[in-house]
Nucleic acid binder design. Structure first.
Length: 561
RNA sequence: CGGAACGUAGCGCAGUCCGGUAGCGCACUUGAAUGGGGUUCAAGGGGUCGCGGGUUCAAAUCCCGCCGUUCCGACCA
């Protein structure tokens, strides 16, 4: 492709709205432009790379027997009401104003709709149906460029099986296909066990990429590969002690001491000797959650332990329930349910709030002073703690969810009455699985992992072009002639070539554009080298340059350096 | 939805406090020079100052309302 005739609007400065590197570079390199919050237009070069990602996905999905569909984005609202998901999605679901349609945020309902009456026998299964298509979600806060948009491209796949054993097979096929897809896209990723959340179903795994722009937090063990969403992650941490002798309970004046850090500094004690209290409202009743030192309550764990509706108490409620404000609350004389983290089990000689502002209590023995206390794993794993699997050190970081695979089960087939007859002639609901990949997230994550101060650094096979051919001074007849010849030869040799044939652009400008766009190899044709029948070849990633004779160019390009 | 900031040319910004002819850099157009890392000189084009209302002789600037964008949080399959 000739740059002089292409729409590749590169920018020296990026709009201030772009904050993360992938977003800034996508815009600076002329790959995409924002239309509105969370809505992006893909420009030719960006779309070219995006298509390469989609091609890889197609190949891997076809390889496991997937059949490509194209379902409508515009869906009758009625079908969504039948599965209760108009309510479940709430404001996230886009609704059409002048007809009872919704814009599909995913396609379980539509797959089930088409399966109904068409997949009628166990002999019709298994089926793997997939599509690569635009999805719509009315995100309250789009952010990080294409990482969280209101409109985005998703590969979604669905398995239809006669039983759980069949679902297991389909799930494993997708697990393998996903690994191949992300491997081929040259991403550094990892797989975490996750909770299936509002999708329903039994088992789910997320494919994640480490990134500060991520919206999930993950605990990861480099050594053994243990990876888990912090919502459910566990670790080995030092428990509070039980000393041989319990001191009596005593009150301490602690003016203006609120946080655990302040308490430790004031009393010259260690965090391990303190217990932090948080008040939650559980189905209308107060619950005191006691944590060791500065440990954070993991609200997902709390929710699954006690069930029902749980929310943190409001500041006004704290005073009413405990008689004190946050920072002075403790388990002694607390009138309601108390649950504590396992690390505090049976500890003594602890310091905690006195339920009286500006006072704390020392000498707390949980066995003696809070006999009804219940213990659970309630803490949020922190970086540096030990892996529960291998004892090595855990790292906690932000991550972007690239893909998610679910064993759905029969939730949708039952809601929509999608039944088949099994070997014995018995009617059963079809067993479904659902498998998603954020196509644009692959794109953004790749850039997050492959850039430098000059710009993007593409790797095959995602690079929009294999070679960026630069004619330095195209007004020079020898240079332009040589370039034209090389351009034709490279194309004939099967390369995709972006040819900077602009006549009116200085050398430095072309170099910077080439580095910004980031094709893996640059072939640079300038007067000096050309006088000796030579051109320069530059590796974008390493910056390494080689000057070769014209007739050795194709040979050199065959072995990457 | 809670907190904060911003909105002036395609992009980055100044001007707003203290009302009085709308500016700068990059990009763009024309011409010339240059031609291996955003080169130089000259001459140009481009703006309902987010929208609506109000105050005023006069509003980018002051007041009110709305919209949009971004960040932090909440939310999130």
């Amino acid at each position: 492709m000739r740059l002089s005739k292409s729409f590749i609007p590169t920018l020296k400065e990026a709009p201030t709205e772009a904050v993360i590197p992938s977003h800034i570079l996508m815009i600076r390199a002329g790959l995409a432009r924002q239309l509105s919050a969370g809505i992006y237009s893909w420009l030719p070069i960006g779309y070219k790379a995006l298509r390469k990602i989609m091609d890889i996905i197609r190949e891997e999905m076809n390889a496991i027997g997937g059949q490509e569909f194209h379902f409508p984005s515009l869906n009758p609202k009625e079908i969504w009401e039948q599965t209760g998901r108009v309510e479940a999605f709430g404001d996230i679901l886009f609704q059409i104003k002048n007809r009872d349609y919704v814009l599909a945020p995913t396609h379980e309902e539509i797959v089930a709709y088409h399966a109904k009456g068409a997949i009628v026998s166990y002999k019709d299964m298994p089926q793997i149906w997939y599509q690569i298509q635009t999805k719509f979600r009315n995100e309250p806060r789009p952010r990080s460029g294409v990482i969280r948009g209101r409109q985005f491209i998703m590969k979604d796949a669905y398995t239809l099986d006669k039983d759980d054993a069949g679902l297991d097979v389909g799930y494993d096929l997708h697990d393998k296909a996903y690994r191949s897809i992300f491997d081929r896209c040259r991403l550094k990723y990892f797989v975490v066990g996750a909770s299936s959340g509002a999708m329903g179903g039994s088992k789910s795994e997320e494919f994640m990429v480490k990134s500060d722009a991520g919206e999930d937090t993950v605990a990861y063990c480099e050594k053994c590969g243990y990876a888990s969403n912090v919502e459910v992650a566990q670790s080995v941490a030092l428990p509070a002690k039980r000393h041989a002798e319990s001191k009596p309970v005593y009150e301490i004046s602690t003016p203006n001491v609120k946080s655990i850090n302040e308490l430790c500094a004031f009393l010259k004690i260690h965090e391990q000797e303190t217990a932090k209290s948080r008040i939650y409202i559980h189905d209308g009743q107060p619950v005191l959650v006691l944590m060791l030192g500065n440990d954070e309550v993991n609200e997902t764990k709390l929710g699954s332990v006690i069930g029902g509706n749980v929310r943190p108490a409001h500041p006004e409620e704290l005073k009413e329930i405990t008689g004190a404000d946050a920072g002075s609350i403790g388990p002694i004389d607390f009138k309601h349910r108390i649950i504590a983290d396992n690390l505090l089990k049976d500890a003594n000689n602890l310091y905690s709030g006195a339920n009286k502002n500006d006072f704390h209590i020392g000498g707390i023995d949980l066995l003696r002073d809070a006999p009804k206390i219940e213990y659970f794993d309630l803490r949020t794993v922190k970086s540096g703690e030990k892996c529960i699997r291998c004892g090595s050190t855990l790292e906690v970081f932000k991550a972007i969810e690239l893909g998610h695979i679910f064993k759905l089960g029969t939730k949708y087939s039952e809601a929509l009455g999608v039944m088949f007859l099994d070997e014995t002639g018995k009617e059963k609901p079809i067993v479904m699985g659902s498998y998603g990949i954020g196509v644009e997230r692959i794109f953004a994550c790749f850039i997050e992992q492959n850039y430098d101060e000059k710009g993007i650094v593409w790797k095959e096979p995602l690079a929009p072009f294999n070679i960026h051919l630069i004619g330095l001074n195209m007004k020079n007849g020898a240079v332009s002639e040589a370039c034209e010849k090389i351009y034709i030869e490279l194309i004939a040799d099967g390369y995709e070539v972006l040819f900077d044939d602009r006549k009116d652009v200085s050398a430095g400008f072309k170099f910077n554009d080439a580095d910004l766009l980031g094709m893996p190899i640059q072939v640079i044709v300038g007067e000096k080298n050309l006088k000796e029948e030579k051109v320069e070849v530059k590796n974008r990633r390493t910056g390494e340059k080689k000057v070769v004779e014209l007739n050795k160019l194709l040979e050199l390009l065959k072995k990457p350096f």
